[in-house]
Computed example of a mutant assay.
Amino acid sequence: MSDLQRLLKESWTLVEEHQEKLAGYFYARLFLRSPAIRDLFPVSMEVQRARLLGAIVTAVHTLENPERFDEYLRSLGRDHRKFHVDTEQYVVVGAALIESLRAFARDQWTVEYEQAWRDAYAVIASKMQGGALADTNPAWWHAEVVGHERRSRDIAVLTVKPLQQLNYRAGQYVSIEAPEHHPRVWRTYSMANAPREDGTMEFHVRALGAGWLSGALVRRIRVGEIIRLAAPMGTMVLDRRSDRDIVLVAGGTGLAPLRALLEELTTFNRTRWVHLFFGARDREDLYDLEYLQRLAQAYPWISLVPVCSHDREWGGEEGTVAAAVSRSGPWRAHDFFLSGSPPMIRSTLRVLTQLQVPYTRIKYDAFSDH
Rank of each mutant, 00 (worst) to 15 (best):
L276C: 09
R220D: 15
R219D: 14
R184L: 14
A260E: 00
A322L: 07
P257Y: 07
R29M: 14
L229K: 03
L76G: 00
A322F: 01
R281V: 10
H80D: 00
I227T: 09
H18I: 04
F278S: 09
I226R: 05
P138C: 01
R272A: 09
V307Y: 06
Q89K: 07
K161P: 12
V60K: 03
T13D: 15
G234F: 13
L276Q: 03
V205K: 12
M191W: 03
R244S: 08
Y113M: 07
P195F: 00
E225I: 10
F277L: 05
W109L: 11
R294S: 04
L40R: 05
A120T: 10
D119H: 14
Q293I: 02
R281Y: 09
I37R: 03
L22Y: 10
V57T: 12
I176Y: 01
R102C: 14
H18L: 13
M45D: 10
V357L: 01
G77Q: 05
L97G: 13
Y113G: 02
L355E: 10
Q19I: 14
E10F: 07
D198I: 03
H370D: 12
D86F: 06
G252P: 14
H61K: 04
F69M: 08
G130H: 05
T188S: 11
L166W: 10
M45A: 01
A280F: 05
S339H: 02
L63Y: 09
S326T: 06
R281E: 12
